[in-house]
Amino acid sequence: MSSVTATSGESTFIPSRASGLGKTLDEIRVFVWRNLSHIPRMPERLADVTVMPIMFVLLFGYVFGSAIAMPGQVVTADSAAFYRSYLIGGIFVQSVVFMSITTAVGVVSDMKEGVIDRFRSLPISRVSVLGGRAIASLFEGGLGITVMALCGLLVGWGARAGFGNAVAGFALLAGIALAMICLGIYVGQLVKNPMTAQAIGFTAIFPLTFASNAFVPTDNMPVWLRTFAEWNPVSAMVQAVRELFGNVPAVDPMAAGLIPARDLPWPLENPVLATLIWIVVLGTIGMTLAVRKYSQGKDR
């Protein structure tokens, strides 16, 4: 230990004063590296974004799919096959919405550890830690979507509205994921332990994703639930993704007179635009609150 020297023999290194966008981007890159480096040591973290959606696809697709038909249709082998590709859009959205929970859990664990104090005491931009977390989460989400898309292809799903629309569909999912991640970063700083984050997430997100068109069409829901479901942002997101991937019924049951005609709420008539608005609104709220909370530091 006698060789330990702090300043004798070495010059006292004062980090450069460099600041600005370039430095912040470099810091974000370092934090992305840090968060991604966690994955090989705790691969179970990826289960949320990979195993769970696959189970949903298989369980819903085959268990419920064999009994669910689009409104006005009867259950056949064809309707089951269609339901599976219909379902994938819902599960895509559900899984990116769930990114908020996985992100929050990651952030809580971070904040609990002493290392966050070290980060705060470093001469780095305040947004770097959060930005790195957001982008790393986005990578995880991207991996999840990829796994799911491959799984979807195996059960008969496909992007059937052309290449451009498919790209737009995935871009939209990325946007939703980013907004959800920002919200997750905020929530993760509010609560004290990962279990709480998980509990809040599940009680908020589960009903939100189920009371929507993600798993079943809303047409036959009781009116009160249908109203809620159709204004639910999740429904607009799911509808947008389905349209961009071409997973909507070939025959519109309402236009064909199979179910009573009614006016759909605006978000479902303009699902892509509505989704973009939701992304901007939720993302801005999440990001603003998250950065503000982080800047305040933790009081203890």
Partner: peptide
């Protein structure tokens, strides 16, 4: 200030997973 200080806190401020 942050450019010129080092802090060793009560609890090891290191990333447990790395």
């Amino acid at each position: 200030v942050r450019r010129r200080i080092g802090l060793v806190g009560q609890y090891a401020a290191v990333d447990e997973i790395l």
